[in-house]
Every structure is written in C-alpha cells, then in structure tokens.
Write a protein that binds this DNA or RNA. Structure first.
Lengths: 266, 266
DNA sequence: ACCTGAACACCGTTCAAGT
DNA sequence: ACCTGAACACCGTTCAAGT
C-alpha cells in the first residue's frame, strides 16, 4: 500500500518523525507538512472528518488543491499524518501530592490518569475514531508517545515487557471502544419514545423471539433506562469495565506476586 | 438526523423490524429492503465498504441508481440497515455436552462462547468496523439479538438488570476494539524492517524523549516482537484482556456472592 | 407509486504546462 | 522542484418526466 523510503521505513512514518529528507533545490516551499496537518486537524476538530477535503484544506491554506500533492501522496497519507500527530496527545496530568495509598494503590491511580488522558484526547478529537488505522499507525509519533506514557503509568506493576505491552494494548482498546460508544450514543436522549413507539417495538421484540432482551426492553432498562442525569452517557458502564480490568489485574497480582513464579494457588 | 414514523420510531428502525407499512397502491415494487440490504452486504463482504456505492449496488440489482431512493432515504440509511441486519449474527454455538465444571465455571464458558460469536461476526464482515454507528443502532435487530444472546450467556451470574447490561456493553466494546486492532494490524508482517529502518527510527525514538517506549523498541519488543507464528495477530493480547475482565468479574462475584445486595458499580 | 434520464455539486487524482 | 489550470472518472442526490 504505502510507499517506502530508501531505509525501508514507510514514507508516512518518516515524514511524521521528520526524518524524511526534503528536497533542497528548486523554489522555496510554500507549505510544510506541519502546517498542512495542523490545518487539517483544525478543520476536523471544528467541522468533522468529512469536512476535511483536499479542496477545502488547500483553500484554508491559501493554495490550490493540487499543490497538496507535492507534500502528500494521497488523502490516506494525510489522514495517517493527522492520526499520528504528536500534538493530539494531552499533556500528562501532573501527579497530585495527595497522600499515597501505598504501592498497591499507586498503580491504580496512575492507570486511571492515563485512561483519562486517552479519553480527553478522543473527546477533543472525535474524528480520531473515524480514521481507519493501518499497520503503520502504531509507529506514528502519537502512538509511541501514548505507549510511553502508558508504560510509565504501569511501570510499578512489575510485569514483563510483553505483559506490559499487552496491558497497554488491552486498556487503550477498551478506552477507544468506549469513546466510540459514547460518541455513537450522543443524542440518545432525543430518542425518548412515546408509548406508541414502545408498543410498536414491543410487538416485534417479543419474549418468544428474544427471551432475555425482551423483558429488559419492556421494563425500560434497555433504552432510556434509569436516566442518570448526573452521569453523562455511559460513564457508569465505562467505570464498571475499567474496574473489572483493574480488579482482574489486582487478583492476578495477588496470586503471583512480584518476583515469584506463578503459584498453583487459585 | 433520521426521519421518524408516525409512531415516533426512527424510520430506519421501523424498516429494519418490518413494521414500516409499505405503500399499497401503484405498480408492483421491483425490489425490497431485504434484497437491497442483502446485496449491499454481499458487496461489502466481498469488496469492502468503499465498494458499496449507490450506483454499483443498483447495477448489481439490475436497476438504475435513482430507483434505490424509493426504498432508502439516503446512503446513511442504507448503511444503518446493513449494520442492523439480523443475518450478520452467527448462529449461537450449541453448548457441548462436555462435563460441566460447575456453576462457577459455566458462565465463563458461556461468556467466551458469546465473545467468540462476536469475533466470528467481525471476521466475516470486517466492514462493520467502518460503519459509523448512531443513537439508533442499538435498536436494530442485530444489536438486540446480540444483546439477547449475551444476556443468555451471563444469566447464571445473578447480576442485576443494570449490571447485566453494563457487562454486555463492556465486553462487546472490548471485543469490537480488538477486532478493529486485529484488522488494522493485518499485514504487519510486511513491516519487517531492516537494520537501516530500525536505526532511522532509533534516532528519533530515544530514551531521552521516550524513556519507557524506547527500551522496548530497541529490544525489538514493540514491532515484530517475539513472533508467535502459532497465534494469529494479537490473539494472546486479546486473551489476556478477556482473562482480566473475567477474573475481575470472578473476584467481584466472590466478594459479593449471589443474593447479596450488589454494590453500585464501585 | 414506481422507475428513469438528465443534470448538479461535489469528490480525489492525473497530467501537461508554466515559473 | 514548486504551483497551477484543465480535465477525468467518479461520488451522492435532486428533479422533472414518463408509465
């Protein structure tokens, strides 16, 4: 798919890290990858990913559409550069000087701080969820930076390298999935159905066909449900799942403490 | 966004469930929502979501592009109907007659069977990960059917309705995120960088800038890593995370056994 | 009410030209 | 080597017409 530089690195990765040598001769360049990507992100933040067209982007930069192709092989490459931009990653929260709960609690706080950072990123740049990732996306600056911060957060757990990376992958996958869910369900409130709509749905979501879902639907627990106005969206579900992951981690940690080989105690 | 029927139900939901009354007078209809959606899914399965254009779909059905607009308000509605098609959901695996591990093990087996079903669905229809969901997607037949099967799987856990639904949401989010990861990382093998590429990346992924990621990268644990040819893609990471969720669930279950008032998610 | 043909306002991208 | 103007092959969608 993507082109490759002389060193064998994908072109888009080299561009993102700034190791892609720019041509030296010829007229001065009117733009740079940085300005192009920054403007594209600005448009996506403000008007959504669909608003990021080559024409609109070029116009916003004061050039013609075709000039962009001097910097970017195609639109996919532009999207990948947006996805990998280091500027997307929030500054890590400064750890508060609050009384520590001991080493057994610290990693939970650090892990939660990291997931909060991820959520902040998705909240500020929801279009990230719309960009199709690819094999090279994990090599982009934003990904590596996030992994670095994640590894930092869980460094106190004493896991192996492979386990550390697995955990980072698992947790970031979980958070991104929930960010997507939160985005998808936005405006769910407008779906406050009247009795007619509920009856129409009830005629087809029947206990015979859907024995487990139907009762939940009829009780109102499925849509709308117990409306928690305090909690925005699926906040409580998010916490529930993250708690499960953390408790699972704690259980595993307790079972096989640092430095010990896994015991058969279970 | 979407139009609404007389009953207040979103038009696309009514169509999907078959409660949307078809016009009676006039010429016989040449197509149906079923045939249109089935053909669209066929195209997406075979050639990807990008290949599903109104023109191509209509041609495959033997009609002109514009005729589709008699059945579907716009392309978004078509995508939503594809996303919600009941036919996407795999048949639930018949529980094997293997010796039971007791009620404390049964729910783990059932939960894993359900997640396997979800993964099968994403593997067979990878374009599902590319369709932007919306507030109404949870009301579509495929979603409700999957929720029903999920509730069935965890019915032995004795959780509250709300907890059940939370768990379904959490687990399905996790699985979909990993399905996306697996898809995104497909072809990662082609990224077997030579020493030149590694050196170029190493010049910019430095211990100073990325203290936690750099060592992992230099040790080869980040890209390529310990190549497990037996395990396709991120299989082991997937299992790791699912184990964590299940262990967390077991720990919680142990702490607040069935019959006790459940703590409210935290 | 169905289906069609023509047309519109966009897309991303190529190419030959100017500087 | 940069930037441009014109052109191409598509998109989704609207509209007035035929039946």
């Amino acid at each position: 798919m993507g082109e490759v530089t002389d060193s064998g690195l994908p072109r888009v990765v080299a561009i993102a890290w700034g190791t892609h040598a720019q041509p030296q001769s010829g007229p001065r360049r009117g733009m740079s990858h940085e300005t192009i990507v920054a403007k594209a992100i600005e448009i996506a933040d403000e008007h959504g990913l669909a608003a990021v067209t080559m024409q609109r982007l070029a116009e916003a930069l004061g050039f013609t559409t075709m000039s962009l192709y001097r910097y970017v092989a195609n639109k996919d490459e532009l999207l990948m550069l947006m996805l990998g931009a280091e500027s997307l990653v929030p500054e890590p929260a400064v750890p508060s000087a609050a009384p520590s709960g001991g080493p057994d609690e610290d990693w939970r706080v650090a892990l939660r701080a990291w997931t909060d950072s991820l959520r902040t990123m998705y909240a500020a740049h929801p279009w990230l969820l719309d960009v199709t990732r690819g094999p090279t996306s994990v090599l982009m600056p934003a990904s590596v930076l996030l992994v670095d911060q994640g590894l930092h957060a869980i460094s106190g757990l004493g896991l192996s390298d492979h386990e550390n990376l697995s955990l980072i992958l698992v947790v970031s996958s979980y958070v991104s999935a929930f960010a997507a869910l939160e985005r998808d369900l936005a405006g769910q409130d407008d779906l406050a159905f009247g009795p007619e709509a509920m009856q129409e749905l009830g005629s087809v979501i029947t206990p015979e066909r859907l024995p487990y879902a139907a009762p939940l639907f009829l009780s109102g627990g499925y849509v709308g449900g117990p409306v928690d106005d305090d909690l925005p969206g699926v906040e409580s579900e998010y916490d529930f799942g993250l708690d499960l992951l953390i408790e699972g981690l704690a259980a595993r940690r307790h079972r096989a403490p640092k430095g010990t080989t896994a015991s058969k105690h279970g």
